[in-house]
Computed example of a mutant assay.
Amino acid sequence: MSSPCDPQHAPAGDVGAALLMIDSRLKGVYDGKTKTDPEQQALIDQFTASLGPEGANAVLDGACTLIFMFMKWLRMAHEDHDKDVIEYVVPNLVATMRMMPKSVRPEAIPTMAGLLVAAGTDLSPSLWRKQYGDWTKDEMTPLEVTAFLLADYINRVTDDPDFATRLITEALSSADED
Results as ranks from 00 to 15, higher is better:
62 G>M: 12
62 G>P: 10
63 A>H: 14
63 A>R: 14
64 C>V: 06
64 C>A: 10
64 C>R: 07
65 T>E: 00
66 L>D: 00
66 L>I: 03
66 L>W: 00
66 L>M: 09
66 L>G: 04
67 I>M: 15
67 I>L: 15
67 I>G: 11
67 I>T: 14
68 F>Q: 13
69 M>I: 07
69 M>E: 12
70 F>Y: 15
70 F>Q: 11
70 F>G: 13
71 M>P: 14
72 K>M: 08
72 K>L: 06
72 K>W: 01
72 K>N: 07
73 W>V: 02
73 W>G: 02
73 W>R: 08
74 L>V: 09
74 L>I: 14
74 L>C: 13
75 R>W: 00
76 M>I: 10
78 H>R: 13
78 H>V: 04
78 H>Q: 11
79 E>W: 02
79 E>N: 06
79 E>F: 01
79 E>S: 03
80 D>Q: 13
80 D>R: 09
80 D>S: 06
80 D>Y: 00
81 H>V: 03
81 H>D: 05
82 D>L: 07
82 D>R: 03
83 K>M: 05
83 K>V: 05
83 K>W: 05
83 K>T: 14
83 K>L: 13
84 D>K: 05
84 D>G: 04
84 D>P: 01
84 D>H: 14
84 D>S: 14
85 V>W: 03
85 V>K: 00
86 I>S: 05
86 I>Q: 04
87 E>T: 15
87 E>F: 06
88 Y>I: 14
88 Y>P: 05
88 Y>T: 11
88 Y>A: 15
89 V>G: 06
90 V>P: 02
91 P>Q: 06
91 P>T: 06
92 N>C: 10
93 L>V: 05
93 L>G: 11
93 L>I: 11
94 V>S: 04
94 V>G: 01
94 V>R: 12
94 V>K: 07
95 A>S: 13
95 A>R: 09
95 A>V: 09
96 T>D: 02
96 T>R: 12
97 M>V: 02
98 R>S: 10
98 R>W: 03
98 R>T: 05
99 M>K: 15
100 M>W: 08
100 M>D: 07
100 M>K: 09
102 K>N: 12
102 K>G: 12
102 K>M: 07
102 K>W: 00
102 K>P: 01
102 K>Q: 15
